[in-house]
Simulated assay, not measured.
Amino acid sequence: MTIIGITMGCPAGIGPEIILRSFAGKTFVADIQPVVLGDIHVLQKCGETLQLPAPCVEWTPGTPLPDASGGNCIPVVPLSSLASEDIEWGRPNKATGRAMAHYIEAGVKLAQQGVIDGIATCPISKSSLNDAGYHFPGHTEMLASLTKTSSFAMMMAGSRLRVTLVTIHCPLREVADRLTMQAVDRMIRITHKALTVDFGICDPQIAVAGLNPHGGENRLFGSEEEQIIGPAIMQAQKEHIGVSGPYPPDTVFFKAASGAFDAVVCMYHDQGLIPFKLLHFDDGVNITLGLPIVRTSVDHGTAYDIAGKGLASHRSLEEAIKLAAFISRNRAIEQVRNT
C-alpha cells in the first residue's frame, strides 16, 4: 500500500473542493491510500457549500488507516482548526497563510519519517505565505529549505509532454544573462536522473530547446546556442547521456509530443509552460526534482475567482496523487537495486 499525503493548500482557495471531488470520484486504485493534511472544518464547510460528500475521519499518523480507496471516508490529519466564519472563499488572510504552511511542514516531516510515501500538494497563495512570516517565493523553495536541498528543479509532466526549466521565475529580459553552460548542464543531468529513476525509463532521450528563433540561425539571431547550450549538450553526451539539440523552439515540442523525446529541457518559464499547458491544462502535474522526498503538485493556482463556486476541476490533483505513488514505487525499486 502506497500512502500519499495531500496537503490542503490555501483553505480559501479551491484546494478543499478538488480534494472532495477526488475522493467522491472514487478514482484511486486499490493500492493507493490518500490522506489529507489539512482542516476538517474547512473540508466540511466546503462540502456543505457545494453539496459534496465530506465524510472526514480524523487520523493520527502511526495508527491503522481506514480504507479511503472507495471514497467512503476521507482520512484527515487535523493540522488547523479554522472557524468556518473566518473562511471566506477567495479571500486569504494571515490565518490561512499560517495554516497552509503547517500543512507543508507536516507533509515533509511525515515523508521524512516514512509515515507517508510522498506528498501531493494543493495550490497555495505565495503572498499569504509571506504575510504569515514564511519568506519563500513559493512551494518549491520552501520544500527545498525544509529538506535542506540545494540542487532542485521543476518538471511539468503529462502523458504526452514533460518539460524542465533552466530559468524559472525571472523577467524575460534577464533570461539570457542567467543562462550558463553549468546551468544547462545541471538541468540536463537532473532531467536524466528523474526520467531514469522516477519514471523508470531505460535510456531516456532528452531534447534541449534553443533560446533564439530558429536556434540562432548560425548566430544571426543570437549566439547562446553555440556558446552556452551546445557545449553543455556535448559535455553530457560525453558521459553517455541521451541528449541532443539545441533544437529550434518552434518545432521541438511537436516532436516531443509525438514521441521522439521523453522530455524537453527549456531555457525559460513560458517557453516550456505554454506548450505544456496547451496539451495538459487539466491533467498536468508539477514535480519537484532533486528532493529526498517525493513531491508532486497540481499544475494550477488557488483560483480564488472560482473558489466556493463548484467550478474547479480535480483532474490535476488525481494525476498528481497517482504520479506520486508511481514515483515512490520506482524509487523503492532503485533503492533495492543499489543495495
Rank of each mutant, 00 (worst) to 15 (best):
A106L: 10
G107R: 08
V108Q: 07
V108Y: 01
V108R: 05
K109C: 05
K109W: 01
K109F: 02
L110P: 07
L110I: 05
A111L: 09
Q112Y: 02
Q112K: 12
Q112P: 01
Q112M: 10
Q113N: 05
Q113D: 11
V115P: 06
I116L: 11
I116F: 07
I116K: 03
I116Y: 07
D117C: 07
I119V: 13
A120H: 08
T121A: 13
T121C: 14
P123S: 12
I124K: 06
K126A: 05
S127W: 07
S127D: 12
S128A: 14
S128C: 06
L129Y: 05
L129G: 01
N130F: 07
N130K: 15
N130H: 13
N130C: 14
N130I: 14
N130Q: 15
A132K: 03
G133L: 12
H135K: 09
F136R: 00
P137R: 08
H139L: 04
T140N: 07
T140P: 01
M142P: 07
A144R: 06
S145R: 11
S145H: 13
S145D: 13
L146N: 02
T147P: 01
T147Y: 01
K148I: 00
K148Y: 13
K148R: 15
T149F: 03
S151A: 14
A153P: 11
M154Q: 12
M155H: 03
M156P: 03
A157V: 15
G158R: 03
G158M: 08
R160Q: 14
R160G: 00
L161S: 00
L161H: 01
R162M: 08
R162G: 02
R162D: 02
V163H: 03
V163C: 02
V163N: 02
T164V: 13
T164A: 10
L165W: 02
L165S: 01
L165K: 04
V166A: 04
V166D: 04
V166S: 01
V166W: 03
T167Y: 12
T167L: 12
T167A: 09
I168H: 03
H169A: 03
H169Y: 03
C170D: 04
P171V: 10
E174C: 11
V175Y: 04
A176V: 15
D177H: 11
R178E: 00
L179C: 14
L179V: 14
T180A: 02
M181C: 09
Q182L: 08
A183E: 13
A183Q: 12
V184Y: 07
D185Y: 12
D185F: 09
R186P: 06
M187E: 12
M187K: 04
I188L: 04
I190M: 15
T191I: 12
T191M: 09
H192T: 07
K193Q: 10
K193F: 03
K193E: 10
L195Y: 10
T196I: 08
T196Y: 12
G200Q: 13
I201S: 04
I201P: 02
I201W: 06
C202K: 13
C202R: 10
D203V: 02
D203K: 14
